[in-house]
């Protein structure tokens, strides 16, 4: 069992907050992808290898998500940070599966906070309707900064919750309990189905689907040939 210092937890909180606002508000620069968010979290915790593995597995799930417009979707960024903290903290076989399970749960819950954010922004717009219709630049500026600040607070809250749950998980599971060995392979299986489902949906039909099949055949050939 490994416990992170308060200093590292603060840095993880800052990273998770940045990752959280990257998803929608600013800058939308791939930081919110689980593979990126988790790898950096692993590096900060001194265990890059576990960070990449947790990130890769969560990324398979994220490949099934198309984050468009007003649709409700899970938020994997801050969840990945909490997942890595748990996996690194447990430091034993099965830790990655436990971390990813926490990550999935957190991603689901964090998705609901995005809806809260959108409704809160809408209420703010409602209250400022007259000023907006009168062409007030100050009102627009105020609403924009309020929205970004709200998302910052939301992201920080979600990350703090993720880190808290991971820390409690490390303490509760402790050294004693063994982790179910079947958890990681089962989640890898579901991740494969998720990524494939997203790829088939994106490909549609015909020639595009054929290219997906060619890619799959090439990947399988590399695996069976012992390259990977």
């Amino acid at each position: 069992m490994i416990t992170a210092s308060v200093g590292i937890l603060v840095v993880l909180l800052l990273w998770g907050t940045l990752v959280g606002i990257d998803l929608v508000s600013v800058p939308q620069g791939l930081l919110a992808r689980p593979l990126i968010a988790a790898t950096v979290a692993g590096w900060l915790l001194g265990d890059l290898h576990t960070g990449i593995r947790v990130g890769a597995l969560l990324e398979l799930f994220a490949l099934d998500v198309l984050p468009v417009g007003a649709s409700r979707y899970p938020e994997y960024g801050p969840a990945s940070v909490g997942a890595v903290l748990l996996a690194v903290g447990l430091d034993r076989p099965g830790g990655i599966g436990a971390g990813v399970l926490l990550g999935l749960l957190l991603a689901l819950l964090a998705g609901y906070t995005l809806e809260w954010l959108r409704h809160a922004n809408a209420r703010d717009v409602h209250r400022t309707e007259d000023e907006l219709n009168a062409g007030s630049v100050a009102a627009i500026r105020r609403l924009q900064w309020a929205g970004i600040t709200r998302d910052l607070v939301r992201s920080a809250g979600v990350t703090a919750g993720a880190l808290l749950l991971a820390t409690v998980g490390i303490a509760r599971i402790g050294e004693a309990a063994s982790l179910p060995a079947a958890l990681t392979p089962a989640l890898v299986g579901v991740g494969v189905a998720a990524a494939l489902s997203g790829a088939v949906r994106n490909a549609g039909r015909g020639r595009r689907l054929l290219w997906l099949g060619i890619g799959l055949a090439a990947g399988l050939a590399l695996v069976l040939g012992g390259v990977a």
Binding site: A56, A203, W211, A218, L222, A228
Partner: peptide
């Protein structure tokens, strides 16, 4: 997009 996803899924698993 299809080709790279197809390649990556078995390799990652």
């Amino acid at each position: 997009a299809g080709l790279t996803a197809g390649l990556a899924i078995p390799l990652t698993a």
